[in-house]
């Protein structure tokens, strides 16, 4: 059973400045007696008292300003950060896609990068070998795939990364924003694959500033503000409260049509 449960979780980052990170203070401090009162390391409370419960089939969007804690929350949900207070329980294989570039090596060929990126995402070598052709097709990179990655343009890199990421079968898919920098024709193609991937995965949490992608991929949403959960509910309600206007007001007719055909926007309440 795929699910993520988080109870009253907080994430505090200790900030070790040069002084408190070194042994010097610990050692010399003892000898010299209590001069400094800075025995405690200052912390940044990145997330405060988060309670979330996401189950198989849920498609949750994360919205909020920069620095509101969206990425940190995704890392909490993936198990990278274990809560400093409270607790979290993650069941299922997590595929975190926070940074398209992570694990990419400049000096090796596109093919090799496909393999490595797949291993990072929890696939085995055999599973990736089956997917290589499909990925090569999708990226349209052709012979470039045997060239080292450093010869690629930014857009080509994104194509490659998106190709790998959208080829896997995750149980829990955690997506962070930053899917851009490709031309519009490719974006349409990527969107289709992304929608397909989301459909395959058991559970999605997606942080984004792009309303149309959110509308396409998510059904419910969480609004993060300064490390707190400001609001949780259906995507439409949350976006309305966050933006101060109905998200369906100014989407292009073609997007509306696509959304309308593919999936009538459910106003089913989230968690």
């Amino acid at each position: 059973m795929t699910s993520i449960e988080v109870w009253n979780a907080s994430v505090d980052f200790p900030i070790f400045d040069a002084k408190s990170r070194s042994l010097k203070k610990k050692v010399l401090g003892k000898v010299g007696g209590k001069i400094g009162t800075d025995s405690k390391v200052p912390v940044i409370e990145a997330l405060h008292d988060i309670t979330v419960s996401v189950h198989a089939g849920d498609r949750v969007g994360l919205v909020g300003h920069n620095g509101a804690g969206k990425s940190t929350l995704l890392r909490l949900l993936s198990g990278i950060y274990e809560p400093t207070r409270g607790s979290a329980k993650i069941q299922g294989r997590v595929a975190p896609v926070f940074d398209l570039g992570v694990g990419m090596d400049q000096e090796i060929s596109g093919y090799e990068n496909i393999m490595i990126r797949g291993l990072y995402l929890g696939m085995t070598r055999k599973q990736m070998e089956k997917r290589v052709d499909d990925i090569a097709d999708f990226t349209e990179l052709g012979d470039y795939l045997s060239m080292p990655l450093r010869t690629y343009s930014t857009g080509m890199r994104v194509r490659l990364a998106l190709g790998v990421v959208t080829s896997i079968d995750p149980e829990i898919l955690l997506l962070d924003e930053g899917i851009g920098a490709v031309d519009s024709r490719f974006l349409n193609k990527a969107r289709d694959r992304l929608v397909d991937l989301v459909r395959r995965s058991g559970l999605l949490v997606f942080a984004s500033h792009q309303d149309d992608l959110l509308l396409e991929l998510c059904t419910s949403a969480i609004w993060m503000d300064e490390g707190h959960m400001r609001m949780q509910g259906s995507l439409r309600d949350v976006l309305k409260a966050y933006k101060g206007k109905d998200p369906f007001q100014n989407i292009s007719p073609e997007t509306a049509a696509r959304l309308g055909i593919e999936r009538p926007v459910s106003v089913k309440g989230g968690e």
Binding site: E5, W7, N8, D49, T51, G79, G86, S87, A88, K89, I90, Q91, G92, R93, V94, G122
Partner: peptide, 15 residues
């Protein structure tokens, strides 16, 4: 990755 943990903190004691 399977993050397995036993959580009995279902009671919502925030403190």
């Amino acid at each position: 990755m399977h993050a397995t943990s036993t959580v009995d903190a279902a009671d919502e004691s925030a403190a």
